[in-house]
Every structure is written in C-alpha cells, then in structure tokens.
Write a protein that binds this DNA or RNA. Structure first.
Lengths: 354, 354
DNA sequence: TCTTAGCACTCGTCCTGCCTGAGTGCTAAA
DNA sequence: TTTAGCACTCAGGCAGGACGAGTGCTAAGA
C-alpha cells in the first residue's frame, strides 16, 4: 500500500531535518517545520505508522525518530529534489578543473581532492582501463656511450620514459637497430601477448646486445600494467572527524583505515560503478563491504576516452546531504568527461599527457 | 647543580614507563621497577625534587608523575640508549627499499609510507633541491604530422616527457632544426636564466613555427620548477588515532588537518632539517609551528646526490618511543642515501629514473 | 646526612539515586 | 480523521558518597 501524501511529506521533513542537525526529530518540531497544518498528535500517528513500515527508527522509547536506510532510500528515489548548484559553485569547480592540466593521474588525484574539499567528506577517484591497451611505438635516445632513454607511447597516447644505464658501450647504429626491432616485434600487442617466448626470439635476432630488448620491453609492460590497473586516489580522510557520527574514535578509526587500504576500496567500488549510468547512491547496508555497512557512498562515473573509464565519489555517514553531494559530484564528473573528451585545442595551447 | 645518578635513573624509568603505558607513574611502581634498591618514600623525595626542577609534571595532586618536555629532552640527550634494530626489522626495511625502484618522487612517497607503517605514527617525506638545476638536453620525436613528443633531461639525470598536439603540419627536418636550436640556446641554463627575452630571440631564429620553442621551453621550466620545489608526501595520518593522547577528537582533528596542509608542514620542517646532521628530535614546544606545540617530531635527512637533499620524519605525541623511532628512521634514511648514492649497477640490471 | 616507615590528606574516578524534560502511545471527544 | 489531554518511558545531568592511588610531611633509624 502506498504512503499518503502527508506521510511522504513527513518522511521528507524527518530526513532533511536529521541531515541538518544530526538529532532525532520529534513530532512537535515537525509540526512547526514544513507546511503541515496538522497537530503534533496527528503527526505522531503517522510517525508510528512510518516506523512500523520500517522507514524510521527510534533510538529509544522517548527519543525522536531517525530515518532508517530504507527511509533514506525512499527519500533518495522519490522525495529528494535535485539540487541546483549556485553560479558561485559552478564557477569554483570550473576554475579548479581548468586550472592546470597535468598528467592523467595527477588530474584524477586533483579531482578527488577538489571533491573532498567541496563536500566536506572523504573522497576518492580512480581510473580503470576497460579494454586492453597496447604499445604504439618505441623510441630510444642515446645519451652517452653508457646510457640511453627509452620512450614508449601507448595507443591511448600516454607517453612514458625511463633512463637506462649500462655497464658497456653503445653506439647509435646499434640503438637504431634495436628501435626497429622493437617496433616491428612488439607494437600492437597487449600485455599478455608480450610473452617471454616472443622476447627470446627478438633477443636472438638482435644478437648479443646485453638483453637490452628484454629491459625495454619489461619497462613497456610495467607501463601497460600500471595504466590498466591504476590506483585509487583518496583525499580528505580527515573530514570524517567533522561529523558527529564519528565522535567515537573507534568508529572513525575503522573507517579511516579502511579508506587507506587502496585495494579493498577499489574492489568494493568498481563493481557497482561499472554498470552505473550517471550517479549512484549506496546507502548503509547496500554496500557490499562490511566496513561500509553503516556508511553511504555516492558515486559518479566519467569517460576518459580511449577505452578508459573513471569513478569519482565520496564516503560519509548515512546521514549525508545526498542532494548536494550528488549534484556536485555529477557536475565534476561531467566536467572531467568533457575535459578528456575534447583533445582538440585552440591553436597555440598544447594539450598534455604524461 | 647536576642530578645525582639515582635521580637520573628515576627520570629515565619514569619516561620509559610512561612511554609504554601512557599512565602517570607513581613512586610505588617505580620502586619495584628498575634496579633501584630504595624504598618508595626515598623515590618520592627524588620525584619531588625532579618536579621542582621542571623535569616532571603532575596532572593533579594525587596522580603520579609525567615527564615534561624538559624531562624528555634530558632523556633524549643523555639517558636514552640507542636502540638496535633486530635482524628481522633490518631485513624488512631492506626488502622494502629494494623492492621496486621507480621514479624519484615515487620512491620518496613509498619511503614515507613504509616509515609510517614501521613506527605506527604518521610520517612524511620530502626532497628539496639545494642547488639550481639545469636542462641537459632536449629531444623531439615526431609522432605523426600533427603531434610530437618532447623529452627533456636535467643535469640531475631526471627525464620527463610530454606529448604535444598541434593544429598544423610538422615535418621531420623542421623538428630537427628545432631540436638543434633548443639544445644550443637553452641547455645549461637555470630556471631564472630562461627569460622570455631569450625565448623571443630563439623563436625569431626558428622562424614562424607556431611558437613551438616557447611551448617546449615552458614545459622544461615546469619540470625544473617541480623538481626544485618538490612536494611533501604524508602517509598514515590515521595512525594518530591509535594513540590515547588523541582520543579527544578535537585534538586529533587539529593535528590531522595540519598534517594535510602540505605547505605549512614543509615550511615548518625544512628549517630545522637543513642544518641537521643525522637525526633530529623536536619535542613539543621546541617546534616552531603552533599546531605542533604538544607534538614531537623526529627527523632524519638523507642525500639524494646531484644537489638534492631529502628529509623523512614522523610526527607523534610527546610520549613517543624516541629510541625506536630514531633508530628506524635513521636506518631508512641511510638506506635511501645509499640507494641514491650508488647509481652503479650490477650488469644487466637497469637503474631507473623517471 | 641520607633513608625509611607511617600516617593524614588530596583528589580523580566510579557508582548510585534523583530529578527533569523531551517525546511517546493511547484514549476520548470533536 | 483529527485533535487535545494525560500517563508513561527513558536518556542525560547533577549531587553525594565510597574507594583508592599517590602524595607530602614528620619522626625515627642507619
């Protein structure tokens, strides 16, 4: 059976008041609040009903009501009004995004920090390859007779380099030979196609050149690997101490140490995000990870292009200002998508990638 | 007037017991502890004296004694026995250091994380150029007609690259010309010698090539800048919640947010470290920053070579296990110095730098 | 002169019981 | 269906008392 209009109104008022004050809210307060023209007694009846149906909870007999996860869920699905960001806020975000574009990974970390600062909750951000990347080209630059720089570029246009020093001499022609060899044998291959077998063959073709092929290819493999399983950036973990639900140091510590374990966080968050479209809200027990059972997570995904996707999100108590957080997060995510989506530049301004 | 042997022994016992238990320690407990063959009454007399001289403090009349910053200072200077690390511990550190050497900045961040984990206190690490760096060489690699990769190498053998995309065509000879120009005009110059003036002249010599010179040189300047003013890496801030002195959320939050402000931390720490020789211990009020007045900092510096120095340290309550922390820290710092100091490699194993 | 035992005293902590006020559920009337 | 009224519950705050750890002082002993 559906809830009456008034009950929905009451539920919404409870949620919003609790989000603001973090205090259980009672019938009298509700009567004054919100455009309800009924008495507190009536509200009490409705509250009793909402509690029975599981939308609200009572910390103890003589306290007010608090939304349950189910209540938050209904609120988020049906009652919440989408929040518009103020001009001021959008300007602030835009400025931050366009400030200084750096390497891919730095941008992502930066975005996480920004979101955390914007929302006052801990935030995280990650990128993830959804397809297998390959190396697009190799270049070797001779520095002096005992060292050279290897530059590899992936088909997602990420460029990385590394300086190699050798115990023996090296000449320009030698290096050119190696470059050709590398480019013919290893370009276009995914990480698991770069087998030791393949490397042995190429090494043989090169003749006894100190295993240089293997060195450079190993480096290329590292690059591919790090791009495909890229890290999680967390920021603003200390913000959890701002919220009264974490006055209990034990709780705070538990969440905090969970947040600093990159791996589990990545696992816990990657799953729900993958099939998500725009923003996704996970309330308390809806989270898979035990450590997050009384915590909510708001996620937004963005496109990096070139087969990479990203997720950015914040973590906070179930009493979170979902409307505001979701609005900010999706605005930032859109900004990131646009940023990565248009590599065309105004003449004279270079686009950068590592 | 000097302290008697027995009083020193007592002071030391107080400090060590307090470090371990975080509880004020009383005369009776002291009598049993430590090889003192005197009664608790005698100890009481000595405690009274030590308190009067400012080495100890009394939280309230009927509590035990707690070391004052002055007491800790004496302990650290004279009474503390240097702690030897166990074989197990040194092995652990060595493994971690040699695990997977990456770019300079990643190594430093990694070392910070390691120290934090090792000591259970928040840790930080930074590197700092003490001399002005210069660019050693430029290389430009043509990718396709509308994009190229610039590779710059500094005289400290750090290599960085960036992909540039252009709105117009580009040819191999053009690029070669530019490379020569860059290498003749800008190699060996420090950051502030790379004036706009100089760039204009070179630009002119290149003829109308879309301001490419400026683009590449700006990039080189960014590289120099980021190397000379490199960031502070903090790790394990959540560890402060492990210690009873930060059960008070307010305190914890204050310190925490201070730790996440990279800038102030860098300033506060760079000064004492610069003239420090090996390890340096700053106890409570000895810290310059107000936020650290009831916090201790243990620092160790290491050499990166090539005109760069680094500092690594931990932050914790004044009741910190100075002996252990100092030992671990200085071992890690030594390890880092060695790591950076010997770029000679066993044949076949490449040394890496970004 | 230094050390020790004894003792009165201080003071924080813990426990208890009491009171207050917010908020509830129920009932009966409008 | 709504409202007013009323008895009931329960957390939080406060005061008072018992407890115990630890002190400082004094007087006796080495």
């Amino acid at each position: 059976m559906e809830l009456t209009e008034r009950k929905k109104k009451i539920l919404r008022a409870v949620v919003e008041s609790y989000i603001e004050t973090a205090e259980p809210v009672g019938s009298k307060a509700l009567a004054q609040l919100a455009g309800l023209k009924v008495s507190s007694a009536t509200i009490r009846n409705d509250l009793a009903d909402l509690t029975e149906r599981g939308y609200l909870e009572q910390p103890h007999t003589s306290a007010g009501r608090v939304p349950s996860p189910k209540g938050y869920r209904l609120y988020v699905n049906e009652l919440m009004e989408e929040q518009r960001l103020s001009l001021e806020e959008t300007r602030q975000i835009n400025d931050a995004l366009h400030l200084k574009m750096q390497e891919l990974d730095k941008v992502i970390g930066q975005a996480g920090r920004m979101v955390s600062q914007l929302t006052n909750y801990p935030a995280f951000a990650m990128a993830e390859g959804v397809r297998r990347l390959t190396i697009k080209r190799f270049d070797l630059i001779l520095v002096d007779s005992a060292s050279f720089i290897a530059v590899v570029m992936t088909d997602s246009s990420v460029v990385k380099n590394k300086l190699f020093r050798l115990p023996a001499d090296l000449s320009e022609p030698q290096l050119q030979l190696l470059t050709t060899l590398l480019n013919t044998a290893f370009v276009g291959k995914t990480l698991d196609q770069l087998t030791p077998e393949l490397m042995r063959v190429a090494e043989h073709a090169a003749g006894g050149s100190y295993g240089l092929i293997s060195l450079v290819v190993s480096f290329a493999m590292e690059v591919l690997d790090s791009l495909e399983n890229s890290a999680v950036y967390t920021a603003g973990a200390s913000h959890i101490l701002d919220h009264p639900e974490y006055q209990d140091v034990g709780k705070a510590q538990k969440l905090m140490s969970y947040l600093s374990e990159d791996r589990s966080l990545a696992q816990a968050l990657a799953l729900p995000a993958l099939n998500g479209d725009d923003t996704k809200i996970l309330i308390g027990p809806e989270n898979v990870a035990d450590e997050l059972k009384d915590t909510s997570v708001v996620l937004a995904s963005y496109d990096i292009g070139d087969g990479m996707k990203g997720v950015i999100g914040v973590v906070g108590p179930t009493r979170m200002d979902y409307a505001k957080v979701a609005a900010k997060l999706s605005y930032v995510a859109d900004g990131l998508s646009k940023l990565f989506g248009q590599p065309e530049l105004p003449p004279g301004t270079p686009e950068k990638e590592e």
